[in-house]
């Protein structure tokens, strides 16, 4: 029975979830919790929050599976990325007053503290903070296209924008990141290293 469930497509499992099949739901969770945890973590940057977001998303799916309409032709994963991304964005908006001042202070002082920042924080921290400081939708576009490996069309569908608008979000995200990381000495900044 377990082997049979494992061979079923996500979309067919969703049909079974609609009729209250807990085993089908469990199979979907086993298949995708890691994938969507990564997506949530890349959006919010914290383990516990990412776990809460993924759990909320799956419970939402369990309680209201009719939200997914296979008839519209969307892949289950594309639809569920949208659910997780929207929950993550809501979560970050609620948390904004707590997290932003620290990031903004850090970013405001980034030029004079470039070398010190590199000493105090490792490269990963600097990169994570630069990405965390991006506006939510730019961050989501970057995560979906760059880290989740989705096509621009899929990412645009998830963020409910056109492909051109998605490309614009990506371009702005990369431009901001390039400026920030360059200012902090992580990108092509020979002149800063020399003068610093």
């Amino acid at each position: 029975m377990v082997e049979q469930v494992q061979e079923i497509s996500d979309e067919s499992l969703m049909e079974r979830v609609c009729s209250g099949d807990h085993q089908a739901f469990a199979e979907l969770v086993e298949r995708h919790s890691g994938l969507f945890y990564s997506a949530a973590y890349r959006m919010c940057g914290q383990n516990e929050e990412a776990e809460d977001i993924v759990q909320d998303a799956f419970l939402k799916l369990w309680n209201k599976p009719q939200g997914y309409d296979a008839g519209k032709g969307a892949k289950f994963t594309t639809w569920f990325y949208r659910v997780v991304t929207n929950l993550a964005i809501d979560h970050m908006r609620r948390k904004k007053p707590q997290t932003n001042p620290e990031v903004l202070d850090y970013m405001a002082d980034k030029v004079p503290l470039a070398d010190q920042a590199l000493e105090d924080k490792d490269q990963q921290d600097v990169l994570e903070e630069a990405i965390a400081a991006l506006p939510e939708r730019q961050k989501a576009a970057l995560n979906l296209c760059f880290y989740e490996g989705l096509s621009n069309k899929e990412a645009a569908e998830i963020l409910e924008v056109g492909v051109k608008a998605l490309e614009s979000l990506l371009m702005r995200a990369k431009k901001t990141l390039k400026e920030d990381l360059d200012a902090q000495g992580l990108l092509g900044s020979e002149k800063k290293r020399v003068t610093g």
Binding site: A26, E30, S33, Q55, L59
Partner: peptide, 20 residues
Amino acid sequence: TRKKPEVSAHLSAQIIAAAA
């Protein structure tokens, strides 16, 4: 070079139990 997030081993079981 961004690190890949590490998934907790209990996450799936936790979600399945919560749904049950």
